[in-house]
Computed example of a mutant assay.
Amino acid sequence: MKLGKVIGRVVCTQKLDYLDRLSLLLVQPIDEHQQPQGGAIVAFDAAQAGDGDVVFYETSKEAGWALREWFTPADAAIMGIVDQINTAEAAL
Rank of each mutant, 00 (worst) to 15 (best):
A76N: 05
G80H: 09
M79R: 02
A90E: 13
Q34D: 10
Q48P: 00
H33Y: 10
A46E: 01
D53H: 07
L67M: 12
N86E: 10
Q84C: 05
M79P: 00
G39T: 01
D20F: 07
A49C: 03
R68Y: 09
E62Y: 08
G52E: 13
I78Y: 04
Y57P: 04
V10P: 03
A90I: 08
A63M: 06
G4E: 12
A43N: 01
A46N: 05
P36Q: 04
G80D: 15
G39I: 02
L92Y: 08
Q37H: 07
A66V: 02
D45G: 13
F71M: 15
D31R: 06
V82M: 02
E58D: 05
L22G: 01
D83A: 13
E89S: 14
D31H: 05
G52Y: 08
P36R: 06
D31F: 04
A91V: 07
I78A: 09
Q48D: 13
W70M: 14
V6S: 09
F44N: 09
M79H: 00
K2L: 15
F44A: 14
K15C: 00
Q34N: 10
E58P: 00
E58R: 07
I30E: 12
A66L: 05
Q14H: 08
S23E: 15
M1C: 08
A77R: 01
L3H: 03
C12W: 06
A88K: 09
V42E: 13
E89R: 15
D51G: 05
D20P: 00
T59C: 15
A40F: 06
V11W: 07
L3R: 03
K61P: 01
D53G: 04
V82R: 02
F56E: 06
L3Y: 04
L92A: 10
V6C: 03
G4Q: 11
A47D: 07
A74Q: 00
T59L: 09
F44H: 10
F44V: 15
D75S: 12
P36V: 02
A90T: 12
L25I: 04
Q37D: 13
G50D: 06
A43D: 00
G80T: 12
I78V: 11
C12E: 02
F56M: 09
V55C: 05
I7L: 02
A66F: 00
W65K: 14
G64E: 01
A47S: 14
I78N: 03
F71Y: 12
D75C: 10
W70E: 12
W70L: 07
K2V: 04
L19E: 08
A40E: 09
Q14E: 12
V27W: 03
R21A: 14
Y57G: 02
L92C: 11
V6A: 03
D75G: 11
W70V: 11
G38W: 00
L16Y: 05
L67I: 15
L16T: 09
A91H: 08
V10C: 06
E69Q: 15
I30K: 13
V11L: 04
L16F: 04
P73Y: 11
E69W: 08
D45H: 08
A46Y: 01
I30A: 13
W65G: 15
M1E: 11
L24F: 11
R68I: 08
S60E: 14
L25H: 00
A66C: 13
V54A: 02
